[in-house]
Amino acid sequence: MTKTLLQVALLFSTLSLSAFGGGKVVLPSMHQSAVGEYHWMDDEDFVNLFSISMAAPGPSMMVVTLVGLKACLPYGIPIAILGALVATLAMFVPSSFLVYFAGNWWDHWKESPWRHSVMDAILPISTGLILAATWIISKTSIHTVPTAIMGVVALSLMLFTKLNPVLMMGVAGVISWTFLK
């Protein structure tokens, strides 16, 4: 139990400091560790937890809460909640410290031309990582023609309309529950 909690804490605090461009970029690593390395869950659970976290309120990376919860679920519900708490704090506290301390000398650095260099350098990397995250989620969840169609329709809706993504996911869930059950 302690070992699992430590693994959760270590994994997410490392990922916290690597999440350049938001939490979703570390999804590939989270998947590698939670499914491949520690066997906390299978692919299907991982993807389902990710979708649940996307449809729930909060910052984009609440999936860490659910991964921590599932990792510690074998030890009972109180420990599962503790695991969820440890995962959430490990994911959000280290990066917050960084923002806090960096904020204090940010002004000195504001005029440096390197600021734009770093920004321009981070963007393609985070794009590649989000692409990898999309790949992992799609590989597990899109395996029939109807789900592929729904994915493409969802993509077009997000790109070309201002539809609320949570509303869209809810409607997609109801459609698939009605027709694909």
């Binding site: 729904m150 994915g151 969802a154």
Partner: peptide, 25 residues
């Protein structure tokens, strides 16, 4: 069945983020 639809839509949402990030990058 419920989650199949939600995850399919979540894939579309993620893919749209790739396009948005790529456009800037």
């Amino acid at each position: 069945a419920l989650l199949a639809g939600i995850t399919a839509a979540a894939c579309g949402l993620m893919a749209s983020m790739v396009f948005e990030a790529g456009e800037k990058a």
